[in-house]
Design a protein around this nucleic acid. Structure first.
Length: 519
RNA sequence: GGCCCCAUCGUCUAGAGGCCUAGGACACGGGCCUUUCAAGCCUGCAACCGGGGUUCGAAUCCCCGUGGGGUCACCA
């Protein structure tokens, strides 16, 4: 049997990080078993701008390297892959269910249903529809319709016995049929609902493994009932643990963003990303740009595989020590058996550290290719960058080392080299420059390095140490004010690197100018 | 509330009856290195929800509590 899995997002306008985990696991399982990974768009709820709402999802998956074998853009033998375009099949299935007595037309009004529900509640009994307005024959249906009632189609759920599924993550799970409601599968307007459509499409697509989040576990009985009634074989089920909020076990939801922002780690990640976004002209409104949404990571310059690797670790582990996997290694290592059953909370710090690890592993040239576009977008280099600019940025990247955690971080490390004048951080100026004697110190230091040749880190270090020794100072006494003088900041690459990258004339000019601000 | 799921350091997890004095990673604390900030190295702190069984032996199996979560739409 060829493994066939699917990810079936609704066009909501953004790709949620929890959805990424579900997509990733489906993809990994298919790849692991030489199977097929299918992308289906569950758009039965007829939204207005499906295309617009779908784009971020498709581009997000592509960016993450989660490629699909069948679906939008690539087609496939079971096209179309949009649920809204498969309604004929859904309606035919409803017809079959009706004909076989597994479903019925129902003419109850919402308020009548409410009444029953309330009565059951008052009696302290579990609610079960009386089927009072069920029409099992066309005569009955005609009579109800004559009363001006509207008909929907409901599942005629069994009222005894139970369903047992063998979930790949949870093991044996049993549901009593009598606890299941007669769910609506077709609306009065003839359109079909998700559960029906999903089961029919899964069967049409020959899906062998339904791998989805745990929130769907309690939907399984009605779906299994539909499948069984239609004579479909049941797929294997694997219900993944929920991706929970940072520091909690509650399902991660985009709607609760305000609460997440109270989490210091989440907040820090958000603020860091927002700072970068603002500099490159990306709209960074918190509700559309935050660490729950994949676009956030792409815009800010995280590495896609870092996100994948980090998400794979949410609810799954290979062993007691391996955490980093290449794409091929992850595929080879992945199995449903090793999925954990308990909810896993999303930890921004952990994601950050995985990102750090992968950024760390990149060569200067690889970083250059990723980071240069950020400088272009921020207007710090021309488009395309000149050879000089590129060379400077490359040196900055080398000098910055592991300080650059995401591609967008280059903005804060390269700007003072690329700008004619550094932007001075007032606090840095107050702390390091505005001290008595600093102006004089800077003048003497500028003089002492003016003649250094070549103007490179090694000789500069020697000259600086000699200067310090002669003046009877500590190294820090010189380095801190000089750093602020030439970069405007207190943090950055090593000072000798900064001087060398900037060059003798610019360095000395900046030191001279900073004397005006010094004490 | 009914049904279902879950329960090991703050977080992600390893652990399928003895390898457990419970391992790893992130975070956190201390130290080294050091011109800032990172990185790196050393080191420390920190968990089996509770109670009953079963067993020579339980984090692991069973039961009962407790706690947390999901779900109960003419949403997906």
């Amino acid at each position: 049997m060829t493994v066939r899995t699917r990810f079936a997002p609704s066009p909501t306008g953004y790709l949620h990080i929890g959805g990424v985990r579900t997509a990733l696991f489906n993809w990994l399982y298919a790849r692991r078993h030489g199977g097929t990974f299918i992308l289906r768009i569950d758009d039965t709820d007829a939204e207005r701008n499906v295309e617009e709402a779908l784009e971020p999802i498709l581009s997000g998956l592509k960016w993450l390297g989660i490629d699909w074998d069948e679906g939008p853009g690539v087609g496939g033998p079971h096209a179309p892959y949009f649920q809204s375009q498969r309604s004929a099949g859904h309606k035919a299935a409803v017809g079959k269910l009706l004909a076989s007595g597994h479903a019925y037309r129902d003419f109850a009004k919402p308020e009548e249903l409410d009444e029953e529900r309330k009565a059951a509640q008052a009696a302290g009994k579990p609610y079960l529809y009386s089927r009072r307005f069920a029409a099992f024959t066309s005569d009955e249906a005609a009579r109800f319709a004559a009363e001006g009632r509207q008909g929907v189609v409901r599942l005629k759920m069994p009222r005894e016995g139970s369903l047992v599924i063998d979930d790949a993550v949870r093991g044996r799970v049993e549901f009593a049929w009598e606890r299941e409601q007669d769910h609506v599968i077709q609306r009065a307007d003839g359109s079909c609902l998700y559960h029906l459509a999903s089961v029919v499409d899964d069967h049409d697509f020959e899906i062998t493994h339904v791998i989805r989040a745990e929130e769907h576990l309690s939907n399984t009985p009605r779906q299994a009932y539909i499948a069984l009634s239609l004579g479909y074989p049941l797929p294997a089920y694997a219900h993944l643990p929920l991706v929970a909020e940072p520091g909690s076990r509650t399902k991660l939801s985009k709607r609760k963003l305000a609460a997440y922002l109270k989490n210091p780690d989440f907040r820090q990640m958000q603020d860091h990303g927002t700072r970068i976004a603002e500099r490159i002209g990306v709209a960074a409104a918190a509700d559309t740009f935050n660490p729950v949404i994949v676009d956030f990571y792409r815009e800010v310059g995280y590495l896609p595989w870092a996100i994948d690797n980090a998400m794979a670790l949410l609810g799954w582990a290979y062993d007691d020590k391996t955490e980093f996997f290449s794409r091929d290694e992850l595929i080879a290592a992945f199995s449903l058996e090793r999925i954990n059953a308990s909810p896993a909370s999303f930890d921004p710090k952990k994601l950050w550290s995985v990102q750090d690890h992968y950024m760390h592993a990149l060569s200067a040239d690889e970083k250059l290719a990723l980071m240069l576009p950020y400088l272009v977008k921020a207007g710090l280099v021309s488009s395309p960058p000149t050879a000089d600019q590129t060379a400077t940025v490359r040196r900055v990247i080398e000098a910055s080392g592991d300080r650059l955690k995401v591609s967008g971080d280059i903005l804060g490390y390269a700007d003072f080299f690329l700008l004619e004048e550094p932007v001075l951080d007032p606090q840095a100026v107050a702390q390091k420059l505005a001290k008595p004697g600093v102006a004089d110190l800077l003048a003497r230091y500028a003089g002492s390095i003016a003649a250094v040749t070549p103007f490179e880190p090694g000789p500069l270090e020697e000259a600086t140490k000699a200067f310090v020794a002669e003046a009877g100072l500590k190294l820090g006494d010189v380095i801190h004010p000089v750093r602020v003088a030439i970069t405007g900041k207190t943090v950055g690459p090593g000072l000798y690197d900064c001087l060398a990258i900037l060059g003798a004339s610019k360095s000395i000019a900046r030191i001279d100018r900073a004397r005006g601000l010094a004490g």
